[in-house]
């Protein structure tokens, strides 16, 4: 996926038992972001695969002052790429991981 300068990873082992994930996002390459942000802080949040959208979470992060509006697309894309990967892995694993 195109490198947004942001890294998103699972904050906890994916138990696959429900649609909720614990994710962690932080800035890996500050030069790739346009607006103001905090470099060495990781933001942990829950993401519900059925109810949430990456855009909505990115919007909340911008509203909370973690990122500038101009970076919300990059934040959403980073979350979307990771969630898509997790869904693919879940599909490949036997039921219940």
């Amino acid at each position: 996926a195109e490198d947004t300068g942001l890294r998103v990873e699972l904050a906890e082992e994916d138990g696959c038992s429900n649609s909720s994930l614990a994710l962690r996002l932080w800035v890996e390459d500050p030069k790739k972001l346009k607006g103001k942000h905090k470099d060495n802080e990781a933001i942990e949040f829950s993401f519900n695969l059925e109810a949430d959208t990456p855009e909505e979470v990115a919007y909340e992060m911008v509203k909370s002052g973690f990122f500038h509006e101009s970076d919300s697309k990059a934040v959403a894309k980073s979350i979307r790429d990771r969630v898509t990967l997790i869904k693919k892995i879940r599909e490949k694993k036997p039921a219940g991981c």
Binding site: R7, W26, E28, D29, N40, E41, A42, I43, E44, F45, S46, V57, E60, M61, K63, S64, F66
Partner: peptide, 27 residues
């Protein structure tokens, strides 16, 4: 810990903590 901060926005909880040193070196 004092380094962790919890922020709520529209019912969503964000837990902010320092990026582990090891992860910073990785990038």
């Amino acid at each position: 810990s004092s380094l962790t901060q919890v922020v709520h926005s529209a019912g969503r909880r964000f837990i902010v903590s320092p990026v582990p040193e090891s992860r910073l070196r990785e990038s």
